[in-house]
Write a protein that binds this DNA or RNA. Structure first.
Length: 635
RNA sequence: GCCAACAUAGCUCAGCAGGUAGAGCAGCAGUCUCGUAAACUGCAGGUCAGGGGUUCGAGUCCCCUUGUUGGCUCCA
């Protein structure tokens, strides 16, 4: 007998060699129907796994992250089986579960068309209907390679050859289809009650553009038909929050063929931009930052010296002035270096925090442009902190505090990553290790959860990245903190120490918003266009019931405007319902309805976006209420 | 840049198997003075992304270019 400890702590005696399925069936037939995979002592396994010793058992359903993954992983096998049946020449690459479904990469003669997806989806449904069982088996390395070679699966052969020596090489069989796979999988294909193939895309083998481009099919699946409908419904809803759609509807910004990746900001978008900048300046002055402005175009020699020519040239724009080569800045740091070098600094002056709202241009590949999120010019809310080596940790912690303060004001949740040395980079291994450790130490001191992003640092130093989510859950890097020993060296920066000698300062590059343009995109999607009052381009609109209230409306407007509130009047000869509807679709936070009654009593009938009619109140009562809301930046 | 799809009025979309463009909203002009998400009538608005080709005839079929979308690579 073996002892199985369940999630709730209860213990169960079972015969040795019993399958997990049998254990669950014994606990509850209802749970058995929903179970997809299981964890034995934290290791995810199939339900057919035989228990041979005492263990802790955790049963996974579609509600568990790992259960979902197994479900989608099996779905990707069904996809591969369908493709092999319809396109026998297709070779299989990889087919994992991802956050929102699954995909499979195929090497095929001719790219898949949208029509092919339909046919493949139909074939998948047949496989599901057959309710094939998934059966696991293992092979020694040489047999596994021979087996895959025989089937012509060259990508699989490559995968097996690269597995570590001690790896268990397992396969899963469903009907006549076999795939190399670590598992786990759900017991049978019939559990997939609803499947939808969403898109085809090219994807390089192993994500390397030097490799062959494969055809990737994305799909999603669920154990219930209604869950698929809900999922598709959610995607539709998310589209309504898309900042590109809202940007057009709310007249914030636009993009034109004349400047792909170069957004135009309209008056209302510019109001938001300016408010963010104003807020940014206040918070930075409080924290001892100075602000500078440096040129957009600087001589090429500067960029050679900074290392950008060697490591960032592909992303830069160049121009000529009087026969000399110049570059449009893709980063602000070299300009900041020049200013640091204009005079001598004492150690007493450090840390020196120098901010710059710098307009940078970067040549991004045409295929990656995306609204305001990925553009070819943007404003970095940059700052460079020059400091003594012993100030590193405090300064990093200060920036983390600042970023957290900013994001929490908007109510954002964020993800943190630590990016380490990339292949194309400069400096010694010791410097990189020192810098990376310093960042990591600060993260730990602050108690932040973070993921390590191997090889994704800047070419001059490692970085802590802060990611925010868009409407469909894609994350975008916004804030970043980069520790740099290289630039001070390259530009021979110095400060005079207590010993009267010159020493080398260390520097931090950091941004909070990241790109003000991208941040506006994130804000738009986060609030679905209904910006908090302090950020709303129009904060109040006064709506008249009839033209008898026009002069009262103008008077109110002047009072609010004097208090720096962004107010508009709607005196058109339209029905009040029509005016309300329009203000509502423009997502204006407050509507003041004024007619004969209000005029007589010097009141306003208040209506708030999303909260409807709030009744009547004195005009000055409303004024103090909205002023407080703006001052506290409440969301 | 690569793979696929898409591009018709300011916006959202019709235009079926080639026979020279249509709706709703927005805009403009009038009428209605109206109390919490759409009053009524009329008018105007398009070298169908740009260029080439096939055809008696192309928004519709083919090719190229540009842009957009979803991915890949890359990144704030």
């Amino acid at each position: 007998m073996v002892e199985v400890v369940l999630k709730d702590g209860s213990k169960k005696q079972c015969p040795k060699g019993i399958s997990i399925s049998d254990v669950i069936r014994d606990i509850s037939p209802g749970l058995f129907r929903r179970s997809l995979a299981a964890q034995i002592d934290g290791r995810t396994v199939d339900l057919s796994y035989k228990i041979n010793e005492d263990c802790r058992l955790n049963i996974l359903t579609f509600d568990d992250e790992q259960g979902k993954k197994a479900f989608w992983h099996t779905s990707s096998h069904i996809l591969a089986q369908a493709v092999k049946k319809l396109f026998p020449g297709a070779r299989l690459a990889i087919g994992p579960a991802v956050d929102n479904g699954f995909y499979y990469d195929f090497d095929v003669e001719k790219p898949f068309s949208t029509e092919d997806l339909q046919v493949i989806e139909e074939e998948m449904k047949k496989i599901i209907k057959e309710n094939l069982e998934l059966e696991r088996f293992e092979l020694p390395r040489d047999e596994a390679i021979a087996y895959m070679k025989e089937m012509g699966e060259t990508y699989k052969v490559e995968l097996i050859e690269e597995l570590p020596d001690d790896a268990v090489i397992s396969f899963y069989r469903q009907g006549d289809f076999v795939d190399l796979c670590a598992g786990p999988h759900i017991p049978s294909t019939g559990l997939v009650k609803a499947v939808k193939l969403l898109s085809v895309a090219g994807a390089y083998w192993r994500g390397d553009e030097r490799n062959k481009m494969l055809q990737r099919i994305y799909g999603v699946s669920f154990p219930k038909k209604s869950m698929l409908d809900e999922h598709l419904q959610r995607l539709e809803e998310a589209k309504k929050r898309d900042h590109r759609k809202l940007g057009r509807e709310l007249d914030l910004f636009s993009l034109h063929e004349e400047g792909p990746g170069f957004p135009f900001f309209h008056p209302k978008g510019t109001i938001i931009y300016n408010l963010l900048v104003e807020f940014w300046r206040k918070e930075h002055v409080k924290r001892g930052y100075h602000e500078i402005r440096t040129p957009v175009i600087l001589n090429k020699d500067l960029w050679i010296r900074s290392g950008h020519w060697d490591h960032y040239r592909e992303n830069m724009y160049f121009t000529k002035i009087d026969e000399q080569d110049y570059a449009v800045k893709p980063m602000n740091c070299p300009g900041s270096m020049i200013l640091y070098k204009r005079k001598l600094y004492s150690y007493r002056e450090l840390p020196l925090r120098v901010g710059e709202l710098g307009l940078v241009h970067r040549h991004e590949l045409s295929g990656v442009l995306h609204g305001l999120m990925r553009v070819r010019y943007f404003t970095q809310d940059d700052a460079h902190i020059f400091m003594l080596p012993e100030q590193i940790e405090d300064e990093i912690l200060g920036v983390i505090e600042l970023i957290d303060h900013f994001y929490s004001i908007f109510g954002f949740k964020y993800y943190v990553e630590l990016s380490t040395r990339p292949e194309d980079s400069m400096g010694s291994d010791e410097d990189w290790e020192l810098a990376t450790n310093a960042l990591e130490k600060a993260l730990k001191a602050r108690g932040l959860d973070y993921k390590i992003n191997e090889g994704d640092g800047a070419f001059y130093g490692p970085k802590i990245d802060f990611h925010l989510e868009d409407c469909i859950g894609r994350t975008w890097q916004c804030g970043t903190i980069q520790l740099d020993f290289q630039m001070p060296e390259r530009f021979d920066l110095t400060y005079i120490g207590p010993d009267g000698e010159k020493h080398r300062p260390v520097m931090i590059h950091r941004v909070v918003f990241g790109s003000i343009e991208r941040f506006i995109g994130i804000l738009t999607e986060h609030f679905a266009g209904a910006f908090p009052t302090w950020l709303a381009p129009v904060q109040v609109r006064i709506l008249t019931v009839t033209d008898r209230a026009d002069s009262y409306a103008r008077e109110l407007s002047a009072i609010l405007s004097d208090a720096d509130i962004r107010v508009e009047t709607d005196l058109r000869n339209e029905k009040i319902g029509y005016k309300i509807r329009e203000a509502q679709t423009e997502k204006i936070p407050y509507m003041l309805v004024v007619g004969d009654k209000e005029m007589e009593n010097r009141t306003v009938a208040l209506r708030a976006r999303g909260r409807g009619d709030l009744g009547t109140m004195q005009a000055d009562e409303f004024l103090s209420k909205i002023l407080k809301e703006i001052r506290t930046k409440s969301v």
